Amino acid sequence: MNKIACQYTIVRFSPFIETGEFANVGIVMMASKQRYFASKLETQRYARITRFFEELDRKLYTQAIHVLKVELERLHQVLKAHGFDRRFKANDVDFAQQLFAELIRPRENIVRFSEPRIVLAENPKEKLDELFSYYVERNFVTKEYIETRLEKGIRKWLYQASIGDRFQRLAVGDDEYEAIFPFVEQVDDRPVKIIKPLNLAQEKPSKIIDHGNLWRSRIEELKRRKRLPGRVLFTVRGPEDIDTHRGHAYKESLDRLQNAGVEIEPYENKEKIIEFARA
């Protein structure tokens, strides 16, 4: 099957012009010769975006995306009138290219577009979904990758509080069993305190439960061997939609960890985490 040259742009939400920070929130794609124009925008799971721009009212995002969605639908109708509607024999390719260029022209708006890119695709719809998964949903990001980023945040906070040197990455356990924790404080070469960032925001409830159970079982095994320090804190990031099956799985995982003797704080509670580390 012949591949089609598709032009696409990444939609970016950039509410603070002063800093230039942005989040990828959608893809717009066009193959003018094949009369294809489509877009995919993040309209459901946008907690990552509102967390990143935490000072912002989330309504600003939803309203901006709604306005863009309406505009893209309008442009699609214009393209249909100039040949994208397959009922017409003629197709004004040059007009379509000009319209696409005008859409993505740099403006001082909170919704912006990347430079146009070209990708070859056998099926433009499938390629649009693939690009959305990569650039917006970041399907390459694993739970290990996320937890590494959470660790970097905790480490930065500890050093800002001038107590970073008290903690180190360390294997806790004995000759038969051990688990590695990113932040372990020792006194006389014995672990006395642990801080462990934990990501429980996976897409599927079963993944949330599995990951929570993995760390609960490690905690219980260390406790059974009398190798668990007296205080263990898990700084947890969970799903935004806590009233769903994912939210129920998250709450269940937290309950099991607490029953195993783990203290829990949401990752965002910086002051509480520092307070635990100082104690």
Score class of each variant (00 low, 15 high):
residue 29 M to Y: 05
residue 200 L to P: 01
residue 157 W to E: 07
residue 1 M to N: 10
residue 110 I to Q: 07
residue 134 Y to H: 14
residue 73 E to T: 15
residue 4 I to A: 07
residue 115 E to K: 12
residue 148 T to G: 13
residue 207 K to S: 14
residue 145 Y to V: 13
residue 122 E to D: 12
residue 254 L to K: 05
residue 35 R to M: 06
residue 222 L to Y: 05
residue 192 V to Y: 00
residue 29 M to N: 00
residue 117 R to N: 06
residue 70 V to D: 15
residue 31 A to H: 06
residue 216 R to G: 01
residue 155 R to I: 02
residue 141 V to K: 06
residue 222 L to D: 04
residue 36 Y to K: 10
residue 231 R to Q: 12
residue 216 R to F: 04
residue 89 K to P: 01
residue 268 E to M: 02
residue 180 I to D: 04
residue 13 F to H: 03
residue 186 Q to E: 12
residue 147 E to D: 11
residue 100 F to S: 03
residue 260 A to L: 05
residue 39 S to W: 15
residue 186 Q to W: 01
residue 16 F to Q: 13
residue 4 I to F: 07
residue 133 S to E: 15
residue 10 I to M: 04
residue 91 N to F: 00
residue 48 R to H: 12
residue 135 Y to L: 09
residue 131 L to Q: 02
residue 215 W to L: 00
residue 27 I to N: 03
residue 3 K to M: 14
residue 149 R to P: 00
residue 76 H to G: 15
residue 243 D to V: 08
residue 225 R to H: 05
residue 223 K to M: 13
residue 9 T to E: 02
residue 12 R to M: 11
residue 62 T to N: 09
residue 137 E to H: 13
residue 205 P to L: 10
residue 35 R to F: 06
residue 174 D to L: 09
residue 254 L to I: 13
residue 172 V to F: 03
residue 35 R to Y: 09
residue 195 I to S: 02
residue 271 E to K: 07
residue 194 I to R: 01
residue 191 P to V: 03
residue 259 N to I: 00
residue 76 H to V: 00
residue 165 D to M: 08
residue 57 D to L: 05
residue 87 R to Y: 15
residue 180 I to W: 01
residue 53 F to W: 11
residue 17 I to E: 13
residue 43 T to M: 08
residue 178 E to M: 10
residue 42 E to I: 04
residue 28 V to G: 01
residue 225 R to Q: 05
residue 250 Y to N: 02
residue 86 R to Q: 13
residue 74 R to Q: 14
residue 237 R to H: 05
residue 170 L to C: 08
residue 234 F to N: 01
residue 268 E to A: 08
residue 209 I to A: 12
residue 64 A to N: 06
residue 183 F to K: 07
residue 126 E to R: 12
residue 189 D to M: 15
residue 156 K to F: 15
residue 106 P to T: 07
residue 211 H to N: 13
residue 270 K to H: 11
residue 252 E to L: 13
residue 255 D to K: 09
residue 210 D to I: 04
residue 100 F to G: 05
residue 245 H to C: 00
residue 275 E to C: 06
residue 88 F to Q: 07
residue 159 Y to Q: 15
residue 116 P to Y: 05
residue 215 W to Y: 14
residue 202 Q to M: 15
residue 267 Y to H: 14
residue 223 K to D: 11
residue 61 Y to F: 15
residue 148 T to A: 11
residue 92 D to L: 09
residue 54 E to L: 06
residue 260 A to K: 09
residue 75 L to G: 02
residue 114 S to D: 05
residue 193 K to E: 05
residue 222 L to W: 07
residue 173 G to L: 04
residue 78 V to H: 08
residue 99 L to I: 10
